[in-house]
């Protein structure tokens, strides 16, 4: 067990797990979207779980460092909050805020983070930029909502984990990036009907089942 000091509180963590996991396990919340419990390869793409570690000159995403014995961590310094707020506002500047019609309403990670950071869901200074496609219905089992998606990539990771290969992938570049299926026409090749793990893991309700559009597991 590693003993570390987080926000002046001593916590214990299993050697080898990420600092983010250690904090979450000990009831210290750090905003995050792309973190998957127990993974060795953090995606580190949502850029929300910043913390300051003594000895490092800049905030670091806590999912990318191990919970090492003796490290001293601060989760709520001004520079950490600044980066978190900017990242969150950026995400919201491309997000369709329509919680009333979203299956993730009230269990949405974005709502949780907004409340935690005390930031509104609609950023004031950034122009809203939404994608033209509101819903991608090309998959025989799933519907995908690009304007809800935060591109955390958890759906792709869980799909790969469950089936050995991912039936979902990132597509396109830059701001146009989306999650997409491979356009497989032969439905019998797709395990989706019985699985739907992607829907369960999505933090924002960006994927829904064609059978029960409001299911979010």
């Amino acid at each position: 067990m590693a003993k570390l000091l987080v926000d002046n509180k001593e916590i214990e963590a299993k050697e080898g797990i990420s600092l983010l996991q250690a904090c979450l396990d000990n009831g210290i919340y750090i905003p995050n979207l792309c973190h998957i419990h127990g993974t060795d390869n953090p995606s580190a793409s949502c850029r929300l779980c910043f913390v300051e570690i003594e000895g490092e000159d800049k905030p670091i995403p806590s999912c990318t460092v191990k919970a090492k014995d003796g490290i001293i961590v601060k989760t709520d310094t001004p520079s950490v909050r600044r980066l978190q707020c900017t990242a969150f506002k950026l995400l919201m500047s491309v997000h369709r805020v329509d919680c009333g019609h979203c299956p993730a309403n009230k269990k949405c990670e974005l709502q949780r983070i907004a409340k935690f950071l005390k930031v509104g869901l609609k950023p004031k200074y950034l122009e809203l930029h939404l994608k033209e496609t509101e819903v991608d219905e090309s998959n025989p089992f799933l519907d995908y909502y690009p304007n809800r998606c935060v591109l955390c990539g958890k759906c792709i990771a869980v799909c790969k984990d469950k089936h050995g290969r991912a039936f979902l992938t990132f597509a396109k570049r830059g701001l146009d990036a989306v999650v997409s299926s491979y356009g497989e026409k032969d439905v019998s090749n797709l395990p989706c009907g019985k699985c739907l793990a992607c829907i369960g893991i999505c933090p924002v309700g960006a994927i829904t089942s064609k059978d029960s559009p409001h299911q979010t597991a």
Partner: peptide
């Protein structure tokens, strides 16, 4: 850069777009 961003991380994907805008 915003065209060449891979789209993985929040700051590069969305941030560079706002700078360009």
């Amino acid at each position: 850069t915003q065209k060449e961003s891979c789209g993985k991380c929040t700051f590069c994907r969305i941030g560079t777009h706002h700078l360009l805008n």
